[in-house]
Amino acid sequence: MLNIQNLHARVEDKAILKGVTLDVPAGEVHAIMGPNGAGKSTLSYVLTGRGGYEVTEGSTSLNGEDLLALDANERQRRARGEDEIAAPAFLKLAREKAASLKIDFEMLKRGLNVGFSGGEKKRMEIFQMAMLSPKFLILDETDSGLDIDALKIVSEGVNALRGPERGMLVITHYQRLLDYIKPDRVHVLAAGRIVASGGPELALQLEAEGYDKYASAAA
């Protein structure tokens, strides 16, 4: 599924990613944890093709297709699962998905993100995710700004999409999200490299011990 080989990337003159290698097979959920400034968000931006990041070395592919050769929206289209859908069917699906995420249908009549609270924005993203049902998901700091109830709803939405065909990369600061979205593997990203990998227990250990050990090891 998602394959990252020795990925180096920089913003202007500052090297951020210094050789990330990672494999997320179909059907698995991998979590990336790490301290501030480790390169977590850069990794998600480089994978999704946001402008301003330059890949200096390495490669990344989805199902064998070179992602770096594609525009941002093309990557999204590759990762997307759905076929063309007629308007009535689309509306029906939207109503179902909105109901399952406890989104008031009235909210869908508003301008997107116009006057939305942080929680509403996140919920709307999960709703869009449910509608687009992508083959591969990258969730970057999805838990930030959510209260416990919203966190549960968002997690349920993500878990509903788990399946043997789909891979997920969950990027987070805190272990809390992983109580709801149980990862198969946990990786620690520090100073632009994956410095440790393990099972779900690694997240618990990080929560108890902090990132200090890895930060100093990477430096």
Binding site: R50, G51, G52, A72, N73, Q76, R77, Q128, L132
Partner: peptide, 14 residues
């Protein structure tokens, strides 16, 4: 750029 990127993430071209 944030708004444009948000839309591109949903598969719209520029």
């Amino acid at each position: 750029d944030d708004q444009l990127f948000y839309c591109q993430q949903r598969g719209l071209n520029q």
